[in-house]
Write a protein that binds this DNA or RNA. Structure first.
Lengths: 151, 151
DNA sequence: ATTTTAGTTCTTTTTTTGCAGAACTAAAAA
DNA sequence: TTTTTAGTTCTGCAAAAAAAGAACTAAAAT
């Protein structure tokens, strides 16, 4: 049976998922599943708890859960003697999540260095500027990653 | 008349725009316009240079340019005696760009604090954990913003 | 005064995404 | 052995996003 959510819980789910959709371009159903795990009274929910509470189809629920598992934002475990999985947040390794975001930025800086190298040689100042910026952004990003590792 | 791009330039445009589309969810035409400004031999291009080189319609070009202007990733100026605008990258204020991204994260941390406050009181450890994480993420993010300001 | 330039805005078409629903599957329970 | 549980996978559709094309506009040039 579906969980009964208080009005404030519903509102928070809306706020969280709106943020995730707009800022991180997380797809709606995925955002709502994640949000539900933040606000539900029980921090561990089953497939059907999620499906029934959010009024999603099985396929949408399955997809959303598998996406969240893949990016390691949630995890599951079994309770002894039970078949179904209990899903919960994994945000407690949030440094890892932030680190991944930073790593992605580093890739972009590499592309920029490639650009600086391959550009026409007729614009040396511009090329140099791109290279400097790539290196500078890279240094700062590395520093951020270090900062996260210490946390 | 359209610019003639070397094969390596085309490949770089593809790499840059693919990254922007996948990691930053920038829409295709916008990503390509930005990419073109990185790789074109001339760092300043007109509306029609862009339109013809990327084979875009006027409306798509107009939209893409205006979006990039709005988020301050590009800027334009006029050459004396000429009517058309010359667009160029503004990535040289990249710290500002990164700062904006970080500021957005802070909003999410605020929502999390709200969650911790509004959750059921029956899971004090879980609530406390959310609060601690929000505060911790916030501190580190602020530190990153400071790091960017120094750069 | 009218034509051209450098775009913008509106409408339509195309493409992509997100989800529902049904059919399917593998393991466990009865 | 068959039935149930706990999902997954496939097909199709509706809505939203992205871009095209045409009509429009304001300033400048002729």
């Amino acid at each position: 049976m579906a969980l009964t959510l208080r009005e404030q819980q519903v509102k928070l789910i809306e706020r969280i998922s709106a943020w995730l959709e707009q800022e991180d371009h997380v797809q709606p159903a995925v955002a709502r599943v994640l949000a539900l795990l933040f606000v539900s009274d029980d921090p561990e929910l089953t497939f059907d708890d999620i499906r029934e509470t959010l009024l999603l189809s099985k396929s949408a629920t399955s997809n959303a859960i598998n996406m969240l598992l893949q990016v390691e934002l949630i995890e599951y475990h079994h309770r002894i003697g039970e078949r179904k999985r209990y899903f919960r947040l994994r945000i407690f390794e949030w440094q890892m999540i932030y680190k991944k975001l930073m790593q992605k930025r580093l890739e972009f800086h590499s592309i920029l260095r490639e650009v600086a190298k391959q550009r026409t040689q007729k614009t040396p100042e511009f090329n140099q500027k791109i290279l400097e910026i790539a290196n500078h952004m890279d240094k700062v990003t590395q520093e951020m990653i270090r900062l996260l590792s210490e946390s």
